[in-house]
């Protein structure tokens, strides 16, 4: 039954593609969050009229973030090949895709974190300052807990962006569902493969969004 309906779908290939997508998403999301969160906090703190206002530092960070965000991901993937090889020892497969994914998504996530922190009522920062808190205490005790729902929403958007970026990984043999859709579904005109992979991607994105929304609701106290 399935064979007549989906003659070109190789279930082992499909399983491998799912595995690759999860693996790319998992690793790149992990590193993006770990690097992007401090960068976002730094962007916020050094911003105009903020706690550690440093116009030069902010200008520099902001410029780097903008440059990285303006480079199309496909180009980043190719340009970064030497650096990727240096970091992971290979520019091929999942390991070859994670570094460019992280470099592409970190500035994006950092900006979203900066925006989420700016949403925190200034009065709360002022009240915490008035209690005699250090800057570190303000960040960890007040800012991050207050911005948590916003940061979780930012992480959700970032995860979904990573899913769509990872579709281009085929260029360096990264694999994954997006790659399968492009190589088999599009280039070989295997419409059935295209439909199956796109449905799987849709399910993945939907699941990520729902999980993210649940977390946001769980931590929202407003």
């Amino acid at each position: 039954m399935l064979e007549t309906l989906l003659p070109n779908v190789d279930w082992i290939d499909l399983w491998q593609a799912c595995h690759d997508t999860f693996s790319m998403l998992g690793w790149s999301l992990l590193f993006t969050l770990v690097l992007g969160l401090p960068l976002g906090v730094l962007l916020f703190l050094t911003g105009k009229r903020q706690l550690l206002s440093q116009p030069v530092v902010y200008g520099l960070l902001s410029f780097v973030v903008n440059v990285l965000r303006s480079v199309p991901f496909v180009i980043l993937l190719i340009v970064m090949i030497p650096l990727t090889t240096l970091i992971t020892g290979t520019s091929f497969g999942v390991a070859g895709v994670v570094p460019p994914l992280v470099v592409g998504a970190t500035p994006f996530f950092a900006r979203l974190v900066e925006t989420a922190l700016r949403e925190v009522d200034r009065g709360i920062i002022e009240a915490t300052q008035a209690m005699g808190a250090t800057t570190r205490q303000i960040v960890f005790g007040a800012l991050l807990p207050e911005a948590l729902p916003g940061i979780l929403a930012a992480a959700t958007v970032t995860a979904i962006t990573l899913v769509s970026y990872s579709a281009m990984s085929g260029l360096v043999g990264g694999g994954g569902l997006g790659d399968l859709a492009v190589r088999n579904g599009y280039q070989r005109f295997q419409t059935d493969v295209m439909i199956v992979t796109v449905i799987l991607l849709l399910v993945l994105v939907q699941a990520l969004q729902m999980a993210g929304d649940r977390l946001v609701t769980h931590f929202s106290r407003k």
Binding site: G123, I124, E126, A127, M131, G132, A142, P145, R221, K222
Partner: peptide
């Protein structure tokens, strides 16, 4: 010294400025 001083001075605000997450 400033932080120690601030602990000896309480403050309340028009819009309360409570932490909504706590």
């Amino acid at each position: 010294a400033l932080r120690a001083l601030r602990r000896r001075i309480g403050m309340i605000f028009q819009h309360f400025n409570l932490l909504s997450s706590k």
